[in-house]
Nucleic acid binder design. Structure first.
Length: 803
RNA sequence: GCUGGUGUGGCGGAAUGGCAUACGCGCUCGCCUUAAGAGCGAGUGCCCACAAGGCAUAAGGGUUCGACUCCCUUCACCAGCACCA
């Protein structure tokens, strides 16, 4: 037989599969159970790199396996096509973002085709298509209608380079996630989605029907950061004003010896103190980074005193920037006896420190005691435990109108405004003539989509690029007809990715122009069966998608609360030098080159075999030789196949063991050990003189999801007429897994000394097995004259003598 | 600091509480070859000339007939969050 030449056979089969429509799905088909396989859609950066293969070709193994198991597998792919890199590239090279993006999409599609994946390209989507982003605008209007979209102003993360607002999730160590410029705090008016209304529903409790990684569940719960406490009102001496503080530890209330407010606090608006004024000025100058770096606490006295609500003591009010403006009420009660930060502050400014909680265990007092304990110096609450005192004090506070119980969240509302061009226009028209107008008026649904104008100045000018498209901006107010101006901001691209998975199955629905997604098709195909993606989307994309899903649930558009039954995070393929692949480092592995040298099958197999799927590890160029050799050996095995060969029991046993193992491992996303099992079997098969057609065919079927081209070619050489990929996945039978003889490990004092072959029919007869074991010279030698105190026998596994 | 995770050969890694190091890379030796490569075969945790044996899953302890696996303590590394009151 001729040599294995992947570059000859792979394009041939890809073309044939495409002509035959082998992987086409009919989403209306009821005859097979549906399986929706999803991978996070791609940003069209221009070239596919090996990471895309890792992200898409490895899950394709699962898709092909499910197909062979009888599922109708829907594996769509599309492009997350809005975003800043298109604008940056355009500015740099003078190409329009739209042209750049669509050219990249075409290029990447042709690269995707070489993967040999079962992608359902007839259901593709691009988020920058008006027919797609129209529905972002529709969703925005629905949010607006329910009070979940609002115009607000907030101290925000501002990237001076991108000239846009960033969500907290997009600030990495104080730097912009795109350009690594230092982010500054700036007060900016912008549009928000009120995700905080869904905070409680977004908290993961026990959801047995959904299988998501613990890292996401804990990470999101942490990020939502619900804490339960009390908001307590303090009166201000000689004033009608009051001040609210938030605490989760009302049991330490008697230990409050001062109050601290943050520099942006409203109480300071009318402050006449020169010292306070100077402090506020200083605080404003500090960037987020500087505040982070110098942890040294600073503050000044405001000249105000508050009245302690329980004991009437007068306590000073200070201002300090260690109190956050964006959490709780922006004011805290200082309990220096039991809070490390307050303690540090009190020491520095010589404020009184009071112990009100006695520790039950830790009396070393090396650090401030922040734990629970027994109350002291707390009047009638003395002697109570923290937990009980907390309850009693909270009740007392509510009963006497001193405050209310309240939950606080770390999660903030989601700022969706971006002062950029290449995104979804926010469907708002601002009617603000000098004489007063209608304000922010939503664009009527019938007028959607608000399409992006093509001609704009998208290089940074200090104002949003859309504001430069005069003829687009100037419109009539839909309400009063007077001249008005369109909103010139575009939406965060995370809006696009928050619901695309709902759109995929509906892209070819006759109703796709009327609805974001067809309810009937959605009912059949969602939730997604398995969702693959990067671990970096723990706090951004997957959380927003869950928010959208619950919103759609409230609109009555979907019936489920979670959109993906199972989520699997993939790892990262680093460059051969062990660092992240990037053009500037010159360590990018180009999949096209790998395919040209070794073929798509070898690349797929190598990526499957590298290690566990969540592995973060470098691409080792010599590693692919191993799997290429493996494929060559599979190829050469054809010569040894004999039609009429009978399989021995041992052959059958091994074959069924491998069938079982490979199936289980693929289902568990353990592709590396599935491949290892096939390699082991191949090692065994190649040691034989000849092999039967049955076991060879089984081998090819098990390999088919990993290496679809070579298996198809070899399948056809066996004179099979229909595609290997239309065959049923082999089934294992338990009767073949049972062997006539079982190997038993014999231990003395837990140390392995010998192994015995025990016939199946005496396996459960302990005395028989023990007798055989004692016959063994190796066992005799280790026991000698010692008395056997105890023996443990686990049938089919182990026999242990304790002497 | 908090949260989650991970520590196993030279390397990537495997192992329902039951033969640790599967599978692959790399390396060594041999066959083949004028030679090299490819291919094929053998070997490859450490100590020990060999055998026998002993010792090894970050360190230490515990539970168990038996621990890479379960529990406790410590250390190291990775990721996320971080003055969240």
């Amino acid at each position: 037989m001729h040599r294995y030449e992947p570059t000859k056979i792979e394009p041939k089969w890809q073309q044939k599969w495409s002509e035959d429509g082998l992987y086409k799905v009919n989403l209306q088909d009821q005859s097979k159970p549906p399986f929706y396989l999803l991978v996070e859609f791609t940003y069209p950066s221009g070239d596919l790199h090996i990471g895309h293969w890792f992200a898409f070709a490895v899950p394709d193994v699962l898709g092909r396996f499910k197909r062979m198991q009888g599922f109708q597998v829907f594996y769509p792919n599309g492009f997350d096509a809005f975003g800043l890199p298109a604008e940056n590239a355009a500015i740099k090279r003078g190409i329009h973002p739209k042209d750049w993006t669509y050219a990249n999409i075409e290029r990447m599609k042709s690269q995707f085709a070489k993967m040999g994946a079962i992608h359902s390209w007839e259901h593709t989507l691009n988020s920058c298509d008006p027919e797609y982003y129209k529905w972002n605008q529709w969703i925005f209007l629905k949010m607006l209608g329910r009070g979940l979209a609002y115009r607000g102003s907030a101290l925000s993360n501002w990237c001076p380079n991108c000239q846009t607002v960033l969500a907290n999730e997009n600030v990495e160590a104080g730097l912009c996630w795109r350009c690594s410029t230092e982010v500054v705090q700036k007060d900016v008016a912008q549009w928000f989605f009120k995700i905080t209304d869904y905070a409680d529903r977004l908290i993961w409790h026990n959801v047995p029907s959904v299988d998501w990684p613990k890292s996401i569940i804990d990470g999101q719960n942490n990020w939502i950061g619900k804490s339960e406490g009390v908001e307590i009102q303090f009166k201000i001496q000689n004033s009608k004003l009051k001040i609210n503080v938030y605490t989760t530890r009302p049991d330490t209330l008697f230990g409050a010896t001062f109050i601290v407010i943050n520099p942006e606090h409203s109480l300071l608006v009318n402050s006449k103190s020169a010292e306070v004024g100077a402090y506020l000025k200083e605080a404003k100058k500090k960037s987020e980074m500087e505040r982070r770096e110098s942890r040294e606490k600073t503050g000044v006295f405001t000249n105000l005193h508050a009245v302690h609500p329980l004991n009437g003591a007068l306590i000073p009010i200070w201002v300090a920037d260690y109190v956050l403006s964006s959490y709780g009420t922006g004011a805290v009660m200082g309990v220096p006896g039991h809070d490390a930060r307050d303690h540090e502050f009190a020491k520095k400014y010589e404020l009184p420190i009071l112990t009100v909680i006695a520790s039950e265990t830790d009396n070393s007092h090396q650090k401030v005691y922040e734990g629970e304990g027994v109350l002291t110096n707390s009047g009638e609450y003395n002697g109570l435990s923290s937990a009980i005192a907390r309850e009693k004090l909270s009740d007392y506070i509510e009963k006497h109108n001193i405050g209310i119980k309240k939950a606080n969240y770390h999660l903030h509302d989601w700022s969706i405004s971006r002062q950029r061009y290449w995104g979804t226009p926010i469907p708002i028209i601002n009617c603000d003539p000098p004489a007063g107008g209608c304000g922010a008026v939503p664009v009527p649904e019938a007028d959607l989509p608000v399409e992006l104008p093509y001609e704009v100045e998208y290089a940074p000018t200090g104002k949003p690029p859309l504001a430069t498209a005069e003829s687009w901006v100037n419109v009539k107010c839909p309400r009063c007809g007077k001249p008005a101006r369109r909103e010139t901001e575009t939406m965060d691209t995370f809006v696009d990715s928050s619901w695309y998975f709902l759109r995929y199955p509906s892209t070819r629905s006759v109703r796709s122009g009327q609805v974001p997604f067809d309810p009937e098709i959605t009912k059949k195909w969602l939730p997604v069966n398995i969702y693959f993606g990067g671990a970096e989307h723990t706090l951004g994309h997957t959380l927003y998608s869950r928010f959208f899903t619950k919103f759609f649930q409230d609109l009555g558009l979907v019936e489920f609360a979670e959109y993906a039954k199972r989520r699997v995070n993939h790892g990262v393929i680093l460059g051969p030098d062990g660092s992240r692949m990037s053009k500037s480092r010159g360590n990018v592995v180009n999949p096209d080159e790998q395919v040209a040298s070794y073929g798509a099958d070898a690349v797929r197999l190598y990526l499957s075999f590298l290690g566990p799927y969540d592995l973060v590890a470098p691409w080792k160029p010599e590693g692919i030789h191993g799997v290429y050799r493996f494929l060559e050996r599979v190829w050469n095995l054809t010569d040894k196949v004999e039609d009429e060969l009978e399989l021995t029991n041992k052959d059958l046993q091994l074959m069924h063991k491998v069938i079982k193992k490979v199936g289980l491992e693929i289902d568990s996303i353990k592709f590396n050990t599935a491949v290892a099992a096939l390699m082991e079997w191949l090692n065994h098969l190649s040691r034989k003189e000849s092999l039967s057609k049955e076991e060879y065919k089984t081998f090819l079927l098990l390999l088919a999801p990993f290496a679809p081209h070579i298996t198809e070619e070899l399948w056809s050489i066996l004179k099979e007429t229909s595609s290997i990929h239309s065959q049923d996945w082999p089934k294992f039978e338990d009767k073949y897994l049972v062997t006539e003889e079982v190997q038993i490990v014999v231990q003395v004092n837990g140390k392995v000394r010998d192994t015995l072959l025990i016939a199946q029919d005496i396996l459960n007869e302990e005395s028989e097995v023990v007798r055989k074991a004692l016959d063994s010279p190796k066992i005799q030698k280790n026991i000698q004259e010692k008395v056997i105190k105890k023996q443990i026998y686990i049938p089919g596994r182990v026999l242990n003598f304790v002497v």
